[in-house]
Amino acid sequence: MAMTGQEIIDLIRAGIPDADVRIEDLRGDGDHYAAHIVSPSFKGLSRVQQHQLVYAALKGKMGMELHALSIHTAAAK
């Protein structure tokens, strides 16, 4: 069962409390989202490490219920 944008936001914020999360529903089908995440916790981390923090917050759902989630991270706006 695909996830809603809000569920994704809640999961990411639970895992990265200081994150500012914006979700884009790319195709309106509830299965293709882009997540724009800004968090001071990303400071000093490589892109791969930043994304791995997000994947950890998503607790294994990435690649399972969450098939197509495009992730864009930044340490600060």
Partner: peptide, 18 residues
């Protein structure tokens, strides 16, 4: 890293599509 594709350069993981 839970998704495919995965790119490697000189043995080092660079990242996925994004």
């Amino acid at each position: 890293w839970p998704t495919i594709p995965q790119l490697y350069v000189k043995g080092e993981f660079v990242g996925g599509c994004d």
